Amino acid sequence: MREQFVWVTTRRIRPGTLEEFERAWRPDPYPRGLRQAYAYWSEDGQEITGVSFWDSKEDCDAWRTSEGEAHRREVMAPYVVEEREGFYRGRELAVPVR
């Protein structure tokens, strides 16, 4: 199975700011090497986990240290209370058919 490169961020945001946060959260322009991105949020709308899949660790690292990402974080900052992130390598697990 093909190895995947994944960056996961989890942010706790200020109550009632999910809509504004989502507008700030979208990168512009989209980074080179980004294949797919997903966002998952808690029922109360105060915790968002982003999962992005990359062509390589180098592409992800280039984005993480770019001016575009620095600007995006600056725009998100008024809404963010806490942030955690990690970079992972992995692969799809085969789920048996029932």
Score class of each variant (00 low, 15 high):
Gly86Asn: 02
Arg23Cys: 05
Arg89Gln: 13
Val8Pro: 11
Glu74Ala: 00
Ala37Pro: 00
Tyr40Ser: 09
Arg14Val: 02
Trp41Val: 14
Arg98Cys: 07
Gln4Ala: 10
Gly90Lys: 14
Thr49Arg: 03
Trp41Glu: 14
Ala70Asp: 04
Val80Met: 06
Ile13Pro: 02
Phe53Asp: 01
Leu93His: 07
Thr17Gln: 02
Phe5Ile: 13
Met1Leu: 09
Thr17Asn: 04
Leu34Cys: 13
Val95Tyr: 12
Val75Thr: 12
Gly45Glu: 08
Ala94Lys: 13
Lys57Phe: 14
Trp7Gln: 12
Arg91Met: 09
Arg26His: 09
Gln46Asp: 02
Ser52Trp: 02
Pro15Ser: 14
Asp59His: 09
Asp44Asn: 15
Arg98Asn: 11
Met1Glu: 10
Thr9Phe: 07
Tyr79Ser: 05
Arg84His: 12
Asp55Arg: 15
Val95Ile: 14
Val51Glu: 04
Val80Gly: 08
Arg64Asp: 08
Glu43His: 13
Glu47Met: 01
Tyr38Met: 01
Arg23Ser: 06
Ser52Ala: 15
Tyr38Thr: 00
Arg12Ser: 15
Glu47Trp: 02
Asp61Leu: 03
Val97Pro: 08
Arg23Asn: 12
Pro96Gly: 00
Gly90Tyr: 04
Glu74His: 05
Glu58Lys: 11
Thr9Leu: 11
Phe87Cys: 06
Gly45Arg: 10
Val95Gly: 00
Glu82Thr: 02
Gly90Gln: 07
Gln46Phe: 01
Glu83His: 07
Asp28Ala: 09
Val81Met: 13
Gly50Thr: 15
Val8Ala: 01
Gly50Cys: 09
Arg12Asn: 04
Arg23Thr: 11
Phe21Gln: 04
Glu69Gln: 12
Ala77Met: 11
Thr65Met: 03
Arg72Leu: 11
Arg23Ile: 12
Gly86Glu: 01
Ala39Val: 12
Arg64Tyr: 06
Lys57Ala: 15
Arg2Asn: 12
Arg91Ile: 04
Leu34Trp: 07
Ala70Gln: 11
Ala62Cys: 05
Arg2Pro: 15
Ala39Gly: 02
Arg14Asn: 07
Lys57Arg: 14
Glu47Asn: 05
Val8Asn: 02
Val81Glu: 13
Thr9Val: 14
Val75Glu: 05
Glu19Leu: 13
Tyr79Leu: 00
Phe87Tyr: 14
Trp54Ser: 05
Arg91Phe: 08
Arg35Gln: 15
Tyr30His: 10
Gly90Ser: 03
Asp59Thr: 09
Ala70Asn: 09
Asp28Gln: 07
Ile13Leu: 03
Arg98Ser: 15
Glu82Gly: 07
Arg84Asn: 09
Pro15Phe: 06
Tyr79Val: 00
Trp63Ser: 02
Cys60Thr: 03
Gly68Lys: 00
Arg12Trp: 00
His71Tyr: 09
Arg89Ile: 11
Gly33Lys: 02
Ser52Ile: 01
Arg14Thr: 08
Gly45Cys: 10
Glu58Val: 01
Arg11Lys: 15
Ser42Cys: 04
Val80Glu: 06
Tyr79His: 03
Glu82Ser: 10
His71Val: 13
Leu93Ser: 09
Glu3Thr: 10
Tyr40Val: 14
Glu69Leu: 05
Glu92Ser: 10
Arg84Ile: 07
Ser56Ile: 12
Ala62Trp: 06
Gly16Arg: 03
Phe21Val: 10
Trp54Phe: 06
Gly68Ile: 00
Gly33Arg: 00
Ala94Cys: 07
Phe87Lys: 08
Glu92Gly: 05
Arg12Cys: 11
Ala94Trp: 11
Leu34Arg: 01
Leu18Phe: 00
Glu83Thr: 14
Ile48Phe: 04
Asp59Cys: 06
